[in-house]
Design a protein around this nucleic acid. Structure first.
Lengths: 221, 221
DNA sequence: TAGTGGTCTAGACCACAGA
DNA sequence: CTGTGGTCTAGACCACTAA
């Protein structure tokens, strides 16, 4: 059924062009409309088509604008490279969150939160710093939990249901502490991931990952 | 039909647990098996379920491991922020590609390629450097094309069909030239995107984007 | 309001991978 | 071999939205 895909790819149908409706395609291909629907829906999810009721289906103007990428458990990511995984808890405290964090959580200032800083290593080399704030108002049962043995990253993924998350990718120059922790030079460019996880309207946790210099995150389209 | 989702979310079904097969769920919910199939397939695509023939369907161990992110035309991205878009071609030449590029293209050394360096600005401020190599063997009609007026980024997306791409995200310290071009300090941490696009087995083009300091790429899960 | 995609049904056969 | 998901059909009704 990917004859449609071939037509898009060979530019038999051009970007922006309206293609026949589902019923016509179904009779052309001699199959049920549901089948056409499923094929076109798949292509639309892949970003190759734009579909709107009444207006019809057209070839996307900017073919492929999507990539799906993995947000793995860090331990798994390291072990997938056949490297030894080590985890070090660097700091763990209940504290009043700074204004910036409260703002990101869309919460009142001076919330009591759990602040956990840790480091993950691959074959003994620093891999990433995990700097996390956890909303104790939303997750009160976490007040006494220690992340000395298992990383907050992994514990939360396994035990805390969430509905959605925001992710931001960027770069930052390592400050003195970060440089020391990652065994890098001060000022080195670090790839960063900031992620806030939500349960409906409530922010659960926000994490900043600072990767070692040279780290690259790969994906495919 | 997202009763299933609710059960996963409330941990009524635990991560790793096998859930009933499609026929049983269909009779439980009083709907057709195809309907159950579609619902479960959607959840599996979202990463909440693992499905295998004969083995059955189970709740994913690491709920949500995927994010879809946009790879936009840079002009669109800037205009979406209500900022003025400017494009400057900095350098354009046909040259023998360095070994590293040929290797990334999985091509013989010393291929003749088109090398284009340009800068995109938002409201007059440098936004990103686009450093691109184009495989003239695969796209010979491009030999005479100039990207003085339209960016290679946009021209290629609109005119060159491709089947897939590799993407890598990382960070790098700005060298002297990059710093000048981006109006940044030397050594500043730059967020980078490297992308190679393919037509089946043939690499078409490879681009390195160097974003201005402070740039963040956002997405949701 | 009319045309489009969105979704559902009941039943069927197929392809694959565990046991 | 057998149970599971994968896919298909023919027909129906619904929901949205552009005209």
């Amino acid at each position: 059924m990917s004859e449609v895909e071939r037509r898009i790819y060979t530019r038999q149908w051009h970007p922006g062009q309206l293609i026949p409706n589902e019923s016509d395609l179904a009779s052309e291909f001699g199959c049920a409309r549901v089948t056409v629907n499923r094929a076109l829906r798949t292509l639309a999810e892949a970003g190759l088509l734009d579909r709107r009721r009444k207006a019809g289906t057209s070839v996307a103007l900017h073919p492929v604008g999507k990539a799906t990428l993995q947000i793995p458990v860090i331990r798994k990511e390291i072990e997938a490279q056949d490297k030894r995984y080590d985890y070090h808890l660097l700091r763990e405290e209940n504290a009043l969150a700074p204004a910036a964090i409260c703002h990101r959580f869309q919460a009142e200032p001076n919330q009591k939160m759990r602040h956990v800083i840790s480091r993950h290593c691959a074959d003994g080399l620093p891999y990433v710093i995990e700097d996390r704030w956890i909303n104790l108002t939303a997750l009160p049962h976490l007040e006494g939990v220690s992340f000395a043995a298992i990383s907050a990253n992994e514990w939360l993924l396994q035990n805390t249901p969430f509905t959605h998350g925001d992710i931001g990718f960027g770069a930052t120059n390592a400050n003195a502490i970060e440089a020391t922790t990652l065994n890098a030079k001060k000022g080195a460019a670090l790839f960063t991931v900031e992620r806030t996880t939500w349960d409906h309207q409530t922010a659960l946790t926000s994490v900043k990952l600072l990767f070692h210099p040279g780290y690259q995150m790969n994906t495919k389209v």
